[in-house]
Nucleic acid binder design. Structure first.
Lengths: 176, 176
DNA sequence: AACAACATGTAATATGTTACATGATTGA
DNA sequence: TCAATCATGTAACATATTACATGTTGTT
């Protein structure tokens, strides 16, 4: 079995019972800076995991809320994934890709592009630092997420510093 | 028109005539740390760009080598993309995603996971620093790529430092 | 009563990967 | 002559996004 989303869902359902809606929100909020997924991808994936016996429904709530949790087979599969399968190293960042093409734009637009990125990143940095300060990280899953959050903080900080390094160099793209 | 790869190809063909093979190699080598693409995606995309009049064949070489370059419409389209369309902010990093699930593994395997990542990143850092030192960045497109490379260097360095921050904290995931 | 948030799904389309398929040229 | 690299493509499959579709519950 492969599929990153599939295993991420399995891992989240190994922690505690959650609904598709809960999972969607986790991707929107905490997991978003590492992986993204929409509800339209999550619900069919849950159905497949259920049919494969890797998760089972363990409760229901108001509206059509369905709570799932990982079965023993599911837990075993997550551990297998984490230990036996190499994480895919593919990195995609459209903003950095566009940086390669900055020379196609006039100076003012190049600046505007990087400044907009800087603003976005600075805003996220604030947000993540606020999370680190105010949230409670006491259980093992929360401490894990604290480690991931630290990556987010360092990433955004690095990004902002990189823009500050790049901005004064944009003028050079006009020489010759 | 949308599609990141499509516009990346267009931008690369706005610089100078290139073949599908050349473009594939650029993704394998320089562009790889910002966006990835395989030849099986590139060739059909080139055909579509050609049919849309955004690129045209300007030459041929040994074997079936076909050289393309952006037309005026193609150049206009790249600039429109760079200025009018917001870059997609989706970020995907499987290694960081897995960090959220580190608590599912025994201490030694958690350590092994992060150490393997550290080694990978340190190797890339060396590689990028070597590129920065030895390559020539004199034309506007090369200077742009130097700015993107700087991101790669800072990213890998940040990653290594983050692992060094995280490793001593892994033991805490066993408490309680 | 109205609105926001909760809650789950499907359909159509777009994007991306892996495997298949073929052949030419260059250098050792 | 052999192997590596150059060179282009297609097919099947997997993953991901956008739009469509529907209904409930809690709050103001």
């Amino acid at each position: 079995m492969n599929g990153v989303l599939r295993h991420a869902l399995l891992a989240l359902l190994a922690e505690e019972p959650r609904s598709g809606y809960d999972l969607t929100q986790m991707f929107d909020r905490t997991l978003g800076h590492a992986w993204s997924a929409r509800h339209s991808q999550i619900y069919p994936e849950l159905a497949r995991l259920r049919d494969a016996g890797l998760i089972r429904q363990v409760g229901a709530g108001p509206r059509d809320r369905k709570l799932y949790e990982a079965t023993d087979e599911g837990r075993a599969e997550v551990r297998r994934w984490l230990t036996d399968e190499e994480p895919d190293q593919t990195f995609r960042n459209e903003a950095i890709l566009r940086t390669f093409f900055l020379w196609l734009l006039p100076l003012e637009e190049r600046r505007a592009f990087l400044k907009a990125e800087r603003a976005r990143r600075a805003r996220l940095l604030d947000e993540y630092e606020e999370m680190a300060k105010t949230r409670v990280f006491e259980t093992a899953p929360r401490l894990s997420s604290r480690i991931a959050l630290e990556f987010g903080i360092r990433y955004e900080r690095m990004f902002v510093e990189w823009v500050d390094w790049a901005l004064p160099r944009l003028r050079e793209l006009d020489r010759d």
